[in-house]
């Protein structure tokens, strides 16, 4: 199915060797949105979570320490840039690379936290992300084998075959697991019970935006 029927008319192509970036209104919106969020994260301070203490009338304040803040901020900015790259890439393999990078960074951002419940959750997320790198890269490889190319601009005009559809489904399963969305990792929300609001934002935002892009890619391959 043509790109224009999915995201709007093609606005332009940036040929960067074999990493072909293409822009239509959907990609432009996602790209600009993620860059705005990444910029805001780079200049943000974290919040202080306030909760009542048991047994006294006092308050418990939890905030992010300086070392942890710097490490998590660095990882979040890189995560934002990786997601932005995934939004506009026209190359299937580059998309899978960006996806796996985002998965690793998501794990890194949360694992610098010192709360047991959160660390348990991110450990399980890490296991699922590792397992799902097989369908992720395997699916892209199957699509390459079935089409002879990883360029989405070329794939859009090809008639879908059974292997292409199978590869696309594998790829989608890989993306779902790597980004940790339900139903693969239903308790991802447990990772968000910690302070560090800008960093949690990029973990959630990167997953959502990559899923949107993955849906577009699967529809390009399958229809």
């Amino acid at each position: 199915m043509s790109l224009a029927s999915l995201g709007g008319n093609l606005l332009g192509i940036v040929p960067l060797g074999d990493i072909v970036f293409y822009l239509n209104p959907l990609h432009l919106f996602l790209f600009v949105a993620i860059l705005i969020f990444t910029f805001l994260i780079a200049i943000s301070h974290t919040e202080t979570q306030v909760e009542a203490e048991f047994g006294t009338l006092g308050d418990k304040k939890q905030s992010v320490g300086l070392k942890e803040f710097k490490a998590r901020r660095f990882l979040s900015v890189i995560c934002g840039i990786a997601t932005a790259g995934a939004m506009i890439t026209g190359d299937l393999y580059n998309f899978t690379l960006f996806m796996s990078l985002v998965g690793i960074l998501n794990i890194g951002i949360i694992s610098s936290v010192k709360q047991i419940g959160v660390l348990d959750s991110v450990f399980q997320y890490g296991l699922i992300a590792m397992m799902c790198s097989l369908p992720l890269f395997g699916g892209a490889a199957i699509v390459l084998g079935a089409c002879g190319t990883v360029s989405l601009l070329a794939i859009q005009s090809m008639k879908p075959t059974a292997m292409m559809i199978f590869g696309a489904i594998m790829l989608f399963i890989g993306v779902c697991g790597e980004s940790g969305i339900a139903p693969f990792f239903a308790s991802k929300a447990e990772m968000f019970r910690t302070p560090g609001s800008p960093f949690l934002l990029i973990v959630h935002l990167s997953s959502l935006f990559i899923i949107i892009r993955a849906i577009e890619i699967v529809l390009i391959i399958c229809t």
């Binding site: 999915l6 995201g7 709007g8 239509n24 209104p25 959907l26 919106f29 996602l30 949105a33 969020f37 919040e47 202080t48 979570q49 306030v50 909760e51 968000f192 302070p195 609001s197 800008p198 949690l200 934002l201 959630h204 935002l205 959502l208 935006f209 949107i212 849906i215 577009e216």
Partner: peptide, 27 residues
């Protein structure tokens, strides 16, 4: 325009719900 763009906007709305909640620091 494209419905996928509206889907993207809906996703950002969920992000806004997420971040307005966590950025305040309130339980």
């Amino acid at each position: 325009g494209s419905l996928l763009l509206i889907f993207g906007i809906y996703a950002v709305h969920k992000i806004v719900e997420h971040n307005s909640g966590s950025s305040s620091g309130s339980p």
